[in-house]
Design a protein around this nucleic acid. Structure first.
Lengths: 148, 148
DNA sequence: GCAGATACTTGATCTTGTCAAATATGTAGG
DNA sequence: CCTACATATTTGACAAGATCAAGTATCTGC
């Protein structure tokens, strides 16, 4: 890690983390409730979100993005495929690799998922516009550190 | 909801949400990995966290805090109880109610869970102290709105 | 062409989650 | 007191998500 400043766990960071977690859990529950209407689980919705129609993903890449075992992705893909949302296509050049591609129905449903999951949690939505921008800027910096 | 300003979903809020989600997912995976060392699942750890040794909770209250069905809590409590981390005690005054109480082993393990889950995600930890404080302050306001 | 690596699938097993039905207990009215 | 209804938890059935170990297909390098 080539961070110029050594990360220090301040009490502000710990409190921020606690609040962060609380907002996240609350939001996850609310998102889950709306996803039920699409007959999607949270994981399925997250997978759809990751499957950009422009850039289909090998199953192994999806496993990495989901932080889970490849064998788990088999089941998730099975269920999405059985609903006609994705297709498995053998990658050209390497027939071991199965590339997951959204079907038209998948693209359509994904856009609704993006709508639901992109909606900010109530806690964030109710901040003043200035706070929202400040929050965005801080989080941009936070994520930038992640990708160093 | 007695908010003076009507919540508006600005593009800043949506981008903040996206970053927020990304940090949260990353953190959850990392926390999960550390919890494996304690032989705890994320849900079990979260439940332990909610069980303040000072204020034992009826199972129904825990179900609410976990945003899940009461019957689910039965299983979670079973597994924690079988490891000697919690006890079910009938509430005085209403024998239908079972109050979950941490055992000494539960108290001990809970403190390690608090340590692990209270640790801020790398993304937050690597922010400057000023950003950490600013983030904490904004999130405080966000959560305050939630509880109006 | 063979040995070993890689991508995915399969089968076993566990935890989480939901629902409907059962049990036990509490409360209100008659 | 007894009945009817409400509430807290449990049980059983079942599906999804997760991990692990073993199997199959395909690739790559010697």
């Amino acid at each position: 890690m080539a961070t110029a400043t050594e990360p220090v766990t301040t009490s502000a960071a710990r409190e921020a983390q606690k609040l962060f977690f609380e907002i996240g859990m609350d939001h996850r529950a609310k998102v889950g409730a709306r996803l039920v209407e699409l007959s999607l689980t949270f994981v399925q919705a997250h997978a759809l979100r990751l499957l950009d129609p422009e850039r289909p993903l090998p199953m192994s890449s999806l496993a990495e993005l989901l932080f889970c075992d490849a064998s788990n992705v088999t089941g998730i893909a099975d269920r999405l495929e059985s609903r006609g949302l994705v297709e498995r296509r053998s990658a050209e050049g390497d027939r071991r690799v199965k590339v997951l591609t959204l079907t038209p129905a998948g693209v359509e449903l994904r856009s609704r998922v993006l709508e639901i999951m992109g909606e900010p949690p109530e806690a964030i939505a109710s901040l003043s516009p200035a706070d929202q921008r400040a929050l965005r800027d801080i989080l941009r910096r936070a994520v930038a550190h992640l990708r160093d």
